[in-house]
Amino acid sequence: MDDNLSAAWKEWFRANGTQLLLFARTQTRSAADAQDVLQDAMLRLWKSYSTKNNNSWEPPPLPLAYTALRHAAIDQVRKNTRRMRREQSSEYLVSDNDPAGDWFGTAKLEAKERATALQTAIEELPGNFRDVLVLKIWGELTFAEIADALAIPANTAASRYRYALEALRKILKPNSL
């Protein structure tokens, strides 16, 4: 297909891919799963929601992309559950050695330690708090967009964000960031 037709879509992914991958990582248990979920969600979006405008394929709105990620992650969990049940019934020894991977990109060792502490703290948050926090801070969505992405009222998104920040501050030691 002509590159010009999909240029806007590709540019959209280059601009938002890191945030989308971070959200995928918060929805899955391993780096490999997160990558699968991101790829699956992007494939679905490309096939189903790309709109042709001025002879080029326009990317989907960001809240829709996060919704697609959540759905793909749910499907992934179902697949993994079936796989684990099958492997356990076959008496295979299964150990999940695939780590979650680093959520944040850092080069310096000290920064890496702080990033790991932050990742661990975010993982400890309840899922509904974590989703809103990640979408607000790193996804840079408004509360209205978060409400669209998570199918919740905007007021709920705002209150969850406030609770998530409070909880995160309690989990993290003072001045640890």
């Binding site: 890191t18 991958l21 971070l22 991977g101 944040f104 990033a115 790193w138 995160l168 960031l177």
Partner: peptide, 8 residues
């Protein structure tokens, strides 16, 4: 928090 960039 925003100072941390998501991994590429």
């Amino acid at each position: 928090l925003r100072a941390f960039s998501p991994a590429k």
